[in-house]
């Protein structure tokens, strides 16, 4: 009864975009789809939507193949802006709504409610091209949900959003989840994923490198993170001698350690006490998704986004 992606393969000429990826999204979940640029996320979205066809593999939602599913099952928010720049917000959304078979009056009512919630009711008769990128993204979101789809597929919905707009969009996501919708979105922002997602999939070069409930994926490496703070000298030279413990981030306030799966994190605390350190902070945590991502993909997703942010199209509005 879930959204099941099974062994998808897709080549574009000599480039393998998807090399047999499989994962499932349970109904009502918020699902994070992670990967560096060119990893194959957008290709996967387009195959799920039946915009393009896979060379092999299937997509089913509640046991129905994607090619048989009614189009209005899906709500799609493409990565780049997909709106008519010179149409007004209301005309535009009514157009998409009506094309999906939503009666004009109902669509109008829904749009006005959402504009209110997004704090932009005054933009209803403005042309989309005159809106900031963040506000355009809100309109794009409305275009995706107006026909009340079961599954929302959103490609990089948070790219280029300022914190205020990002928060508004996150709230809208949770609202959709509470309405029983299933949400799948891709992003570079790992903290957003940790905050919102019940489960994640990480793909790299067309292959799945991690998949499962967010907490399990974070623990999947077996390593734990220990934050250790002491009074006095923060350099903690004795840590170097400990087997299976690595200093990730030395700091004056506290030091971040990575503890191998074979070692009990509590042994670090014992060692510190043995050495007579006066402990101000001791915390055991899971590695962040960012760390898992770097470990599995070999480079940072965040670093990539910073590079992207230098490109003009990703300038925050």
């Amino acid at each position: 009864m879930a959204l099941i992606i099974d062994s998808l393969r897709k080549r574009f000429g000599s480039i393998v975009a998807l090399d047999g990826i499989s994962f499932r999204v349970e109904p009502g979940q918020v699902f994070g789809f992670l990967g560096a640029n060119g990893a194959g996320k957008t290709t996967a979205f387009r195959i799920i939507l039946d915009i393009i066809r896979a060379d092999a593999g299937t997509v089913t939602w509640k046991d129905v193949g994607s090619q048989q599913l009614p189009r209005r099952t899906w709500g799609y928010l493409p990565e780049e802006r997909g709106l008519y720049p010179r149409m007004t917000v209301m005309d535009q959304l009514l157009f998409f709504g009506q094309l999906h078979g939503v009666p004009a009056a109902a669509a109008r009512h829904e749009v006005e409610e959402w504009l209110e919630r997004f704090r932009i009711p005054e933009y209803r008769d403005r042309k989309v091209e005159s809106l900031s990128k963040g506000n355009q993204q809100k309109i794009q979101f409305l275009a995706a949900i107006l026909h009340d789809p079961d599954v929302l597929l959103m490609d990089e919905p948070f790219t280029g959003l300022d914190p205020v707009n990002a928060t508004l969009l996150k709230e809208a996501f949770l609202e959709m989840r509470d309405r029983g919708k299933t949400l799948v979105f891709s992003t570079h922002q790992m903290d957003t994923v940790e905050e919102l997602c019940d489960a994640v999939a990480i793909i790299d070069r067309g292959q799945l490198v991690a998949n499962g409930p967010t907490r399990e994926v974070r623990r999947s490496g077996g390593r734990r993170i220990v934050l250790l703070g002491v009074e006095g000298d923060p350099s903690l030279p004795w840590l170097v001698e400990m087997e299976g413990v690595q200093v990730r981030k030395p700091g004056r306030d506290y030091t971040e350690l990575e503890v191998e799966a074979s070692r009990d994190p509590m042994s670090v605390l014992q060692a510190a006490l043995t050495r007579g350190e006066r402990i101000t902070r001791f915390e055991i945590a899971d590695p962040s998704l960012e760390q898992i991502f770097v470990e599995r993909v070999g480079r940072s997703a965040r670093g990539e986004e910073q590079t992207l942010a230098e490109a003009p199209r990703a300038t925050p509005a």
């Binding site: 387009r46 799609y76 997909g82």
Partner: peptide, 15 residues
């Protein structure tokens, strides 16, 4: 224009 602005990806979902 529609193809360039990716509106097409939404349109082919609806019609």
């Amino acid at each position: 224009e529609e193809k360039g602005s990716r509106v097409m990806e939404l349109l082919v979902q609806a019609a």
